[in-house]
Design a protein around this nucleic acid. Structure first.
Lengths: 202, 202
DNA sequence: ACTGACCTAATTTACGTTCAGTAGGTTGGT
DNA sequence: ACCAACCTACTGAACGTAAATTAGGTCAGT
């Protein structure tokens, strides 16, 4: 299993260390936020010295971007353009359990970068908007297909849905013992009833 | 208008400065988070030197608590035990416009204090839980009064509702131009339909 | 004399980053 | 077969700076 050539083993070791630094970063950022942690803490958790960490990443900020890149990549692999809203929401719920740090990191960083001048503001808000737009588009599709009511604004409902998701993320980060599955099931259920049924209202 | 007695005017000036420091703190914390700002920034915004600020508040942490106290007080005055869920949700929506910094500060600090060992963790999560419990209790009341369905778990629905609220807070901090009123109206509408109507389902 | 509201100028600490060096492995030329 | 130049993966110590806090002083009013 270990490569016979020592140089390859060396490279593998480096790559492994790099990976450890990234996951340590994700874990710590999720718990304490970016400004709440130091290179020293990350380094310790990854088993290196602060200087050793900077051998792999040129700066604290660049490390953050690398950690976010990993999250975005994971996130993109999870997206299924063909799935409907119910499936997509279910998928979101699953991600909480599967990759807690990756899910958590986004929300934490978002709140840390609310200011338009904040270093990650554009990157994060871009993702946020994209998610909302994608949900709105799903609703429009349903409307065009004739299975959803057409008397409600997809953009408005999309804001609600994304707010629910991010709010659940917060709730779960605060207390992982909440009945995640039930809440998602309940919400998606009422959402579908709301979207589908033709109602009589003034 | 200014008191004829200069000493009273002096005290009033101090109180005014104290107030300015608090509102500056709330504003800056909402935008940049607690760890994202310095005493110097707050002081500058309030028109004092850092040392001058510490004449009014003994430490950065104590200032934070004082700012939170102001928020909690405001929040408590807004709560109306007799109002039903729809009214309460409407009230929440109004608060966004009325006191943006007070509303925003809570969510930002919450994400900055996820860790159980974080200085404000207990204080903030306590408030969060209380809000959720209060919502759940409202639902139970409705159930006992016979106006709400009894086949759903108030605790589960309460998690959803509070998640929606905090999620909306995030969305609005990110982009205040979202159709806040419409989203709240839409959501409360579907919520009431969901809670009230007896449905046929297996 | 004493208090409240400040100020300027230290002091202290923490943290990101840089620097110089070590240990081991590889490569290409002779 | 050997050596010089270069690579990766680090470490320990030092540097620079930013930021919270403190010390000591000023000035106006009572």
């Amino acid at each position: 299993m270990p490569d016979q050539r020592p140089y390859a083993a060396l490279l593998a070791k480096g790559e492994d260390r790099r990976q450890r630094i990234l996951t340590a970063t994700q874990r710590l950022v999720t718990r304490h936020g970016w400004r709440g942690i130091t290179l020293g803490q990350i380094a310790r958790e990854a088993g290196v010295s602060p200087a050793g960490l900077l051998h792999h990443f040129e700066s604290k900020e660049q490390l953050l971007h690398a950690a976010l890149d990993a999250r975005d990549t994971y996130d993109d692999t999870q997206v299924d353009r063909s799935a409907d809203i119910v499936d997509q929401l279910q998928r979101v719920a699953n991600r909480f359990r599967e990759a807690p740090e990756l899910v958590g990191m986004f929300g934490v960083l978002l709140m840390e970068n609310l200011d338009p001048a904040a270093p990650l503001h554009d990157r994060l808000t871009g993702r946020y908007r994209a998610a909302r737009e994608s949900v709105a588009e799903k609703i429009r599709e349903g409307q065009r297909a004739g299975i959803y009511r057409t008397d409600l604004d997809p953009a408005v409902k999309a804001v609600e849905i994304v707010a629910f998701i991010t709010g659940m993320e917060t709730a779960w980060l605060l207390d992982p013992s909440i009945p995640l599955a039930e809440v998602f099931r309940e919400y998606t259920g009422s959402l579908v009833r709301e979207l589908s049924l033709p109602h009589d209202r003034r």
